[in-house]
Each structure stands twice: as structure tokens, then as C-alpha cells.
Amino acid sequence: MDELKRFRLALVAWAAGGARADAAAAVARELAGGGVRTIVLVEGSSDQVALEALATRHGRDLGAEGVAVVPLGGATNIGRFLDVCGPPGLGLPLAGLCDIGEERHFRRHLERVGLGSGLTHAGLETLGFQVCVADLEDELIRALGAEGVQQVIDAQGEMRPFRTFQGQPAQRERPVEHQLRRFMGTHSGRKALYAQALVAHLDLERVPQPLERLLTHV
């Protein structure tokens, strides 16, 4: 297991609290001292995959640069991770990515740990925390267009399952963009699969702004 993965696992265990927290904190502190310079907090693994894939397209290796992209396992966990990564814990520079529906959670906890006061949307961006509208999948679908996303689905050998999904009664009358977004969340691992595949097919002049700004910040 590489050290960056060990670092992420240690952060997760530390943030979870309980009997293992002290030992996990010691591991995280030791590994952070070995070269972690920035922690990027994202809601889920698909966000991590997308950011790392975009970095690769720009010729960057975030891990080698000391940038640890850490999935929270859900936006409501942001407070716990800020406690262990921010001023109360490791005190490392932070950045992040969230959905617009979770922006209030990020603002409240960033202010609670002393990383801002009366934060606005612009204030979050200045700190390095970007907000997707409505989420990263929606951003990527709009950037590629519905036809472009369907080409990616076809390349993954999943056009037939997508057509079956479109035919479901709950989906028939919905816009194709909504169908695409929902399809990506129907199976475990599918969001991450398409996060990587969609970023790989993006025109670099049309990268969603939250993703582009986050990569530029770190």
C-alpha cells in the first residue's frame, strides 16, 4: 500500500473517532510530515477520480506533488475532517469541492474551525473550496453535452443498459440530461467510472469551472 493511500485511511479512521482514533492520528501526522503539503476534501470517490484524471491530462501527478485528495464519504462528514485536517488537527492548507446543496455545511464548519467568517460563495472560492451546480455529474454532462456523454456510454459498452433505463416509467418523460445523471448513480462504482471517462473525453477548453479552478488552486 502506498503512503498516500495509508494517509487517507488514517485520516478516515481518525475522523471516525473511537478506540482507533489516537493511533490513526499518530500515523496521519507521521505520513503528513513526509511530504503532504495540501489536503483536498471532496464529497466522494468520483470527485477524487475526476480531479486526479484532469490533473493527469495536464501532465500533473497530484500525489507526487504532495496533494492528497480525500473523499469524505458524504458532505455531512466535512466537520469531522476539518477537525483532523484543519487548524484543530494537522493544520495543513486545505481546498475542496462540494455540491451546491451542501455548500452551507462547508461554510458553517470552515467558519467553526477558524477558516473564515461570514463566508460567501466568493469567500469559499478564495479559500480554495469550489461549488458544483448541481453536482459534478451535472457539470460534466453540461460540459460534454448529452450526445457526447452518450458516446462515452457507448464506448463503455453500456448503451443497451442506458436505453433500458430510459424506458423505465419513472424516466420516460424526463430530459435526457436528467436520465444520464441518474443512470450514473444506479450501480456502485459507476459514478467513479464515468467521472474518469468523461474527463478523459473533455475538450480542455470546456472543463467545468469548479473542477478547473480547484486544480489551478492546488
Rank of each mutant, 00 (worst) to 15 (best):
V69Y: 08
Q168V: 02
I78M: 14
D83V: 07
G148W: 07
Q168C: 00
L144K: 03
G148P: 05
V133W: 04
D99V: 08
A50Y: 04
A146E: 15
G73Y: 10
D138R: 09
Q151R: 15
G59L: 11
E147F: 00
G79P: 06
T76H: 14
G101K: 10
C98F: 13
A134W: 05
P88E: 12
V152Y: 00
V67P: 03
L54Q: 09
L51K: 06
V131N: 02
G148E: 06
P88D: 10
F162R: 01
F106A: 11
L136C: 06
G101R: 11
V70P: 04
L140C: 10
R104C: 02
T76M: 08
E52P: 01
T56W: 09
R112Q: 13
L127C: 02
Q151K: 13
V84F: 09
F129T: 02
H121N: 04
G167H: 09
E111G: 01
E103R: 15
R60N: 10
H58C: 12
A68R: 08
G74E: 12
G96P: 04
F106I: 13
T76Y: 11
T76E: 14
E103K: 15
G86T: 07
H121P: 00
H58G: 14
I153Y: 01
R160I: 08
L62F: 08
G63W: 10
A53T: 15
L72K: 06
H121M: 05
D83G: 06
L119T: 03
G86R: 05
R80K: 15
E111R: 01
D135Q: 06
N77L: 13
L119D: 06
H121L: 13
L115F: 02
A64H: 04
R160F: 03
T126I: 06
I78E: 05
P161K: 05
H121R: 15
G123C: 08
T126A: 15
V67Y: 05
G66Y: 11
G79K: 14
H58W: 14
V67K: 04
V70C: 12
G157Y: 06
E52Y: 01
A146I: 08
A53F: 00
L54Y: 12
A64G: 13
V131A: 02
A122D: 15
G123F: 07
A95F: 03
F162Q: 02
L92S: 05
G114T: 08
V149T: 01
T76R: 15
V69H: 09
E147T: 13
G116T: 03
S117D: 07
G89L: 09
P71Q: 11
D83T: 13
L144A: 04
L140Y: 06
L82H: 10
L144E: 05
Q166E: 14
I153T: 01
L72V: 12
V67E: 02
T164W: 00
E158P: 00
M159V: 02
H121Y: 10
E103D: 01
L90Q: 10
G157M: 04
P93A: 04
R80N: 14
D99R: 07
A53R: 15
G79Y: 12
L127T: 01
F165I: 01
P87T: 09
V113K: 02
H58L: 15
F129V: 12
A75Q: 07
A53P: 00
E111L: 04
Q168T: 06
E102P: 00
D138Q: 05
L110D: 03
E139D: 14
G91C: 11
G66W: 11
C85Y: 03
L110W: 03
Q150V: 06
G128V: 04
R112S: 10
